[in-house]
């Protein structure tokens, strides 16, 4: 197993990209094949597996009942966390979450929160006292680049098939393992993140691990076709205003193509 991408491989990837080519024959703005599977765990309220090429993540949704936050007494809570499992790459280690996992969780959290894709106001049981908390937990199973987009798509897929568990209001107990036929209320639009990487002069989507290794900077945009809900620039290479404008256009186009593919699985 290759641990890191060597300089010579990196140089070759850059040279290829300058001619508009990638090792696996894709175009700069072309995604790898994507497969989404629902219900990977029957204990979860909702769950999904997303494979993009050899990259794989699983995402689960659990729910519990708790007090609302003081600044949103009539809204449910949302919590997104990510774990980069040592099982999924020789580069990940056991122990408390490192920065990459924290950033991954936070970027996905913001995309979901800002887009209001979960109608949190419908997850209030008793104003100021009891509301549902939705936990979205992301686990990497195999890292071959672009975990972030896979995680965002996985979160949406898991939410789509999540059912609300039964809740015994009198005893304030969630009856885990018994579900109502109510789904988590979701908005019609499906936002998900698309990340564009800058490699040399090229802008590419859905990098393999090798490509990700030589990426100088990345912009993740959580969006639908017409609306942007979250953005994050990662890594330290600067980019020009013109490049940023290109990236906005690329993500709009890629979102449209990807949305068609994703919808087939989510129907």
């Amino acid at each position: 197993m290759v641990e890191i991408t060597s300089n010579i491989t990196g140089r070759r990837i850059r040279e290829y990209l300058e001619e508009g080519k990638r090792f696996d024959g894709r175009k700069a703005d072309q995604y790898r094949e994507i497969v989404i599977e629902s219900n990977v765990s029957n204990k979860a309220e909702g769950s999904a597996r997303v494979k993009i090429g050899k990259t794989e993540v699983i995402v689960g949704v659990k729910m519990s009942v708790s007090e609302p936050y003081p600044d949103s007494p009539d809204k449910g809570n949302l919590m997104v966390t990510a774990e980069l499992l040592p099982l999924s790459s020789s580069r990940f280690e056991t122990g408390p979450p490192k920065f990459d996992a924290i950033e991954l969780g936070r970027v996905i959290d913001r995309g979901i929160r800002e887009s209001k894709v979960i109608e949190l106001e419908k997850l209030c049981i008793k104003k100021g006292e009891r509301v549902w908390t939705v936990f979205i937990d992301i686990y990497s199973i195999n890292d071959d680049g672009n975990l972030l987009d896979a995680a965002g798509i996985g979160a949406i897929a898991a939410l789509k098939n999540a059912r609300i568990p039964k809740y015994d209001e009198e005893n304030d107990a969630v009856l885990y393992g018994e579900w109502t036929d109510k789904k988590i209320p979701l908005s019609k639009e499906i936002p998900f993140p698309i990340t564009v990487h800058k490699v040399g002069k090229s802008l590419i989507v859905d990098p393999t691990k090798e490509e990700e290794d030589i990426s100088e900077t990345r912009i993740t945009i959580g969006r639908t076709e017409d609306t942007i809900y979250s953005m994050q620039k990662g890594a330290s290479k600067e980019i020009s205003i013109e490049e940023m404008e290109k990236i906005l256009k690329i993500t709009k186009k890629v979102w449209k193509e990807l949305n068609l593919k994703i919808n087939k699985f989510l129907k």
């Binding site: 913001r110 800002e114 887009s115 912009i219 017409d226 609306t227 942007i228 809900y229 979250s230 953005m231 994050q232 620039k233 330290s236 600067e238 980019i239 020009s240 205003i241 940023m244 404008e245 906005l248 256009k249 709009k252």
Partner: peptide
Amino acid sequence: GKITHFQLDGKINNEQVQ
């Protein structure tokens, strides 16, 4: 005028970001 940091939270379109 090179961008070294960029974040966004909210609801906006391509043109408005530009």
